[in-house]
Computed example of a mutant assay.
Amino acid sequence: MNPLGTGDPVRLGPYRLLGVLGEGGMGKVYVGQDTAGTLAAVKVPRPELAHDAELARRFVREARAAQAVRGKGVAAVPEARAEGAAVDRQ
């Protein structure tokens, strides 16, 4: 994990961001911690892509597919947000 950099948010939704897990062409993945102490990966699109409707639909599709995968050693996807709409675990 790398430290947060200049311009990185310190909080997203219920998560206090602790550092950066990785960065790619679509965005950054942060390590976040909620008030209960639960750690989570928080994926955020790059600012120039944040208003791309197709990217938002793809993000939601990927989150729903990831929510369907369950098992030992598989990270849970409790929610996803795109354009303010939550996609909760079903």
Rank of each mutant, 00 (worst) to 15 (best):
M1A: 09
M1C: 05
M1Y: 05
L4P: 01
L4C: 04
G7M: 07
G7Y: 07
D8C: 04
D8P: 02
R11S: 05
G13I: 01
Y15Q: 00
Y15C: 00
Y15D: 01
L17F: 04
G19F: 03
V20H: 01
E23T: 08
E23F: 00
G24D: 05
G25L: 07
G25K: 06
M26L: 10
M26R: 06
M26I: 07
G27D: 03
V29K: 00
Y30H: 02
V31C: 03
G32D: 00
G32V: 00
G32I: 00
Q33C: 03
D34P: 00
T38P: 00
L39N: 03
L39Q: 10
A40N: 03
A41Y: 04
V42W: 04
K43P: 02
P45H: 06
P45A: 12
P45Y: 05
R46S: 12
P47K: 09
P47Y: 07
P47H: 08
E48I: 05
L49R: 07
A50K: 10
A53N: 09
A56Q: 15
A56T: 10
R57T: 12
R57G: 10
F59S: 02
V60Y: 09
E62D: 11
A66W: 13
A66H: 12
A66M: 14
Q67P: 06
A68L: 10
V69R: 06
R70G: 08
G71M: 08
G71V: 07
K72L: 13
G73I: 09
G73K: 07
G73E: 09
A75T: 13
V77K: 07
V77I: 14
E79I: 13
E83V: 12
E83Y: 14
A86K: 15
V87C: 15
R89E: 15
Q90Y: 13
Q90K: 14
